[in-house]
Nucleic acid binder design. Structure first.
Lengths: 342, 342
DNA sequence: GTGAAAGCGCTAACAC
DNA sequence: GTGTTAGCGCTTTCAC
């Protein structure tokens, strides 16, 4: 199939290629009649602009690169996350005739910087979206900033001026979850903290603490268990917290994996969820809806965040008008694993 | 950051751009000494070829498009599949300096044909991988064939000459699974058939039948329940099959969702899995390893299939030498949900 | 309102 | 071995 070019269209419509280009790009200064003539020619030849040619001439690729930690190195636990981000980014792309290029890369790899630099310089995406935890790697972000394409950081560990950060209100929503547990009658609420290397995760502990302050309750040291984000550490937390002489009636874990560990261990200890113990998590992983009882948790609007990121890349005006840090609020997902105590 | 061009490198190395081009593309006819000089210049300028320019000139984009049914329309049940395909395709891409562009689209949409045609004509990927069930849509495949880029079909419903198909041995492996169940002592094995619109799924029923022939057992009509690939139809199948006056001791479902439905319903009926009933599925979805007991199933090597597809796109020679239909064998995943009866 | 001409950075075909 | 010359199909600048 021979694809039509601007010139073919121009010849057929009896105008210059520039005029056709104007019509294609919806630029002003075309009379209605010629526009119609050109439109007809475009349709009859089934003309489609060649992206490469357009990119070469205009220095835009109509491509967005989405970069995240390679799930295969993580045993696909993060499948839901990744698809959600892809979905959000794609939604924005489809509305704007952009395409999405995905580029998982190993967080731990040393040459990730070089790898992304190559990606940017060769493919020349119009912007790049970095998902956590890569969005927190200073070296990577900094070297990318030098390429002068818009850098979007999803839930970054820190702020990098020159780039845009899109994050959730981890602290506030964690506070809200804690307050929710209190509101349904829990007097003693424990917290399983996560690996503090991710800034977002440590903010969750701060949210828990803030809620206690709001409630004018003391922070009981024994009620905060330091986990490491793994299911195993959730189990350990449960053994520890439920072994206290006055155990909590609710446990809020900084991520779903740990919450599921808590759930599993609580059941081994003979407790019924949520009758004997309420459990809440954070992240809303796929499994959260599949365990029984289903897990009360916090849902990060990852799709919305990625969509926003993509929109900002595609719209320079929007970008200039918005702050470098934007918050997309998370939401409580109240399910079966929490209810009033006793 | 100003990116270097071939010309910059040529100037610095004191050669023509063609020579630099030769070095970059590892073409022959460059003396060792000039090659070294050029290499040095490339490094010092951190030269990276501009893909758009290369594409425009050479008619290759170093881009592969992966097209699949949009998971958001399916509630993300297929998350595992998609990531596996992406992973496989990406693995091949990384080895060859290609990039991957993903393009989910709604299977049911009417203008999917036009949408993919636009994708191909605008982005000009060097090839396109169509996942099932889109790989079975005649109209789509045919119109894509006209674009003359390599079309790779993953587990297609039919064969389309001119395109390449990469499939698993659904029939044989289903037979193998049935034989396996027989081999551990099951005398009566029921089958839950899936929606026959997908050719692969109906092949599974044929495999079951073939195994019965091999075993010289009669095909009991009541032992084949027609489901629709959903968990709900699995539950229905269980109610039906286990309500028979001589119920089967093993149930093999044509996909994991239905197997999980069977499992759920069997438990409601008071049966213990696998003591009272063995259950096997097909697909090895993420959930298969998460349910308890873990589900015996068949694993399609989706990553390997996608990888192979990508390799064929990137290597024309390979493509010419291989048959249009290639089989990548599936594997039994024996887990906890099957054991000897009684 | 419209068009001519000059590139964007690269590859291809052909000299030398 | 190496260089020269045309483009690839589009946008951009500027003239009309």
């Amino acid at each position: 199939m021979q694809r039509a070019t601007l010139e073919d269209v121009a010849t057929l419509a009896g105008v210059s290629i520039k005029t056709v280009s104007r019509v294609v790009n919806r630029e002003p200064n075309v009379s209605l009649s010629t526009m119609e003539r050109v439109s007809k020619a475009i349709k009859s030849l089934n003309y489609q602009p060649n992206l490469s040619a357009r990119n070469l001439a205009s220095q835009r690729s109509h491509l967005i690169a989405l970069v995240y930690d390679d799930p295969s190195t993580y045993q696909m636990a993060s499948a839901g996350y990744i698809l959600e981000m892809q979905e959000g980014a794609l939604r924005a792309c489809k509305n704007n005739h952009y395409d999405l290029l995905i580029h998982p890369c190993n967080y731990r790899s040393d040459n990730i910087k070089q790898e992304l630099l190559s990606l940017v310089q060769q493919v020349r995406p119009d912007g790049i979206i970095l998902a956590a935890p890569i969005s927190g790697k200073s070296g990577v972000v900094k070297s990318l900033l030098a390429t002068e394409i818009p850098i979007m950081l999803l839930s970054p560990g820190k702020k990098f001026s020159g780039s845009y950060s899109i994050a959730t209100n981890d602290l506030e929503i964690s506070s809200t979850m804690t307050l929710y547990l209190a509101s349904i009658g829990h007097e003693s609420i424990a917290f399983v903290a996560g690996n503090s290397s991710h800034r977002a995760v440590s903010n969750r502990l701060l949210g828990y603490k803030k809620a206690l302050e709001t409630l004018q309750r003391p922070l009981v040291k024994n009620f905060v268990f330091q986990g490491d984000n793994s299911v195993g550490s959730g189990e350990e937390a449960a053994r520890n917290l439920l072994g206290l002489k006055s155990p909590p009636t609710a446990i809020f874990a900084a991520n779903d994996d740990m919450a599921i560990g808590v759930m599993r261990q609580a059941r081994i200890l003979g407790l019924t969820i949520p009758d004997d113990l309420s459990i809440a998590g954070f992240d809303d992983i796929t499994l959260a809806r599949l365990v029984s009882p289903t897990l009360t948790t916090v849902r990060q609007p990852l799709a919305a965040m990625a969509e926003r990121a993509a929109e900002l890349i595609m719209d320079e005006k929007l970008r200039r008008e918005c702050p470098e840090l934007q918050i997309v609020p998370a939401e409580l997902q109240i399910r079966e694993s929490t209810r009033n105590p006793n």
